[in-house]
Design a protein around this nucleic acid. Sequence first.
DNA 1: CGCCCGCATGTAACCGTTTACATAAAGACG
DNA 2: CGTCTTTATGTAAACGGTTACATGCGGGCG
Lengths: 344, 344
Amino acid sequence: MRSATIRDVARAANVSTATVSRVLNRSEAVADPTVDRVLKAANELDYVPHGGARSLASKRTDTIGVLLPDLHGEFFSELIRGIDAGTSAHGLHLLLSRSHGDPQEAAAVLRAMRSRVDAMLVMSPYADGEELSSALKGGVPLVLLNSSGGGGGRHPTFAIDNHAGAFAITAHLLETGRRRVAFIAGPADNIEAAERLRGYRAALASTEQSGELIAQGDFTERSGLAATRELLLTARPDAIFAANDMMAIGCLQALREADLRVPGSVAVAGFDDIPVARFVEPALTTAGVPIAEIGRQALECCVAIIRGADPGDRHRIFTPQLVVRASSTGNSEHGPKSPASERI
Amino acid sequence: MRSATIRDVARAANVSTATVSRVLNRSEAVADPTVDRVLKAANELDYVPHGGARSLASKRTDTIGVLLPDLHGEFFSELIRGIDAGTSAHGLHLLLSRSHGDPQEAAAVLRAMRSRVDAMLVMSPYADGEELSSALKGGVPLVLLNSSGGGGGRHPTFAIDNHAGAFAITAHLLETGRRRVAFIAGPADNIEAAERLRGYRAALASTEQSGELIAQGDFTERSGLAATRELLLTARPDAIFAANDMMAIGCLQALREADLRVPGSVAVAGFDDIPVARFVEPALTTAGVPIAEIGRQALECCVAIIRGADPGDRHRIFTPQLVVRASSTGNSEHGPKSPASERI
DNA sequence: CGCCCGCATGTAACCGTTTACATAAAGACG
DNA sequence: CGTCTTTATGTAAACGGTTACATGCGGGCG
């Protein structure tokens, strides 16, 4: 059952294909009765323009490519949700891909996407923006999400101030009286993870006390669990700051296993404020990031570029908000009590 | 900076465009030295075939369309992860879309995707498969995920046996000595939610005791929280079965607020076994569903259809596995103790 | 009344591939 | 040593849209 083409519609409406095209794209003035005839014919034939043909002729694909480093967990589902909200608001399609770490692979995926999208939204905390954009040879506008520096500022970048967020969390833990604040790091080659580590160190350094206690993780719950077990064997932390919420959740689990009270014996904090963070027990103190909103704004930036509009600030930095919940305060034997519990 | 076309490559390699195409598609025998020349030229020019042109000429898009009803939470991120694993294994692209409930909107989205994909994977628990496929007029192969019945069996369907899962959970709660088992339902018009409700009722009916206790939810954590508050006011459940894990997590939160011990005073169970379910406190008893695996298999089915291979069983039903964790057993004043804690 | 202008529409070239068919060269074979 | 396959490559016609340009037509204006 061959689907109807623009020619079929033209014939049915007794006009030329050019007119049908004009009606469907609202590109030029067409007389009202003609418009009606065309729309009626298109409807009856259940005509849908062929995307490939359209993109071939017009050099637009009405599609945004999205490249993410991973798809695990709520961080990414929130991000995708924000992006999707944007694409569907603008009538665009969303081509999703994932490149596991390796910058080479990321570059390959970008090349494969190149001819099918009008712009790309790329989050690749493992690769330099420069590297990626050279993979594209500038053919497609690129918007970077939380990537390293952004390759000399050639591409708009949306980033989280990981350093500030980690600094704030660490400072909060110290201020509430913790003395041995450990850190569960993210993947070593992940730029965001590295920044969070720097933030942690900077905060420790700003007080004259306590050396660093670091365990290695990889952003998964599992690794948070393992890292915490390890920390409990080697050090005696009275606070653990995990570089993301998923690891913090694994951390809570390990502390429970070890019968350590949170925040009584050990305070815990995460990073990202994924939706579930407020529902774990105890609710997680974290660095709040408007994940979906960032996705949405980054997408809007893509759209602005495509449409030739002003994309606004080329580099938007989101400073995470310290979200204090029960895991770092409340009925602790350390510091003051929680000022107010959050309303859900 | 216009990107290179097949003609540029042909010129550089001193062959015809047909030969270039043959080399790139491995479609016919080409002499080795020619292959080398072509590949070298393509490489040097950084040639990437134009997807639109290709799809226009070959009627393939190498893209699978995925339509989901929502993007909230880990259920969908797991599903997407499974699907993505499949598409990237086969070198296919993934066009993602979300249609909020409304079957009309879903149909519209399908139409818009129709010309850009080779097959579609659709999860639309609000709409009848029949309805959706008529929106496509059979132009594109359709694989359904957890949809209602599957429109007379015309499309392969991958589904969870929601009834059996819910029955098993409810039976488990009853067997462990609970007498007032409440149910937090999913959206009323969601077919999966309806099946789970039926399963709950069937299990209650099979024992002669206790009438139903039902609160309305909508699959979000928030609604689980609200529904539980309501249940606590109106009924005195000693077990709460939420129709999915997210609501169960909200439920745990509400019970904590009310200072009710879990599973001591109230047992809790969910449905789906999302990754975080084992990390909440107490770990959640749930109906385990291999979410990512279902996504992957459904995708493989799409691929088989596209490639003209045997798609295998047209209707695959996954029976959820009862996953007993601490939220429904362990140090309860009811029933027996947990047989064994899970190894993480 | 003739001219020019602007509006609505048609004509046809072009976008970058794939592929059926044609062709040329090289062996195979009697 | 012709003829017949086989193999490698070229030629050119689709594929289904968009859009620059051409055309025809009615009305305003000097």
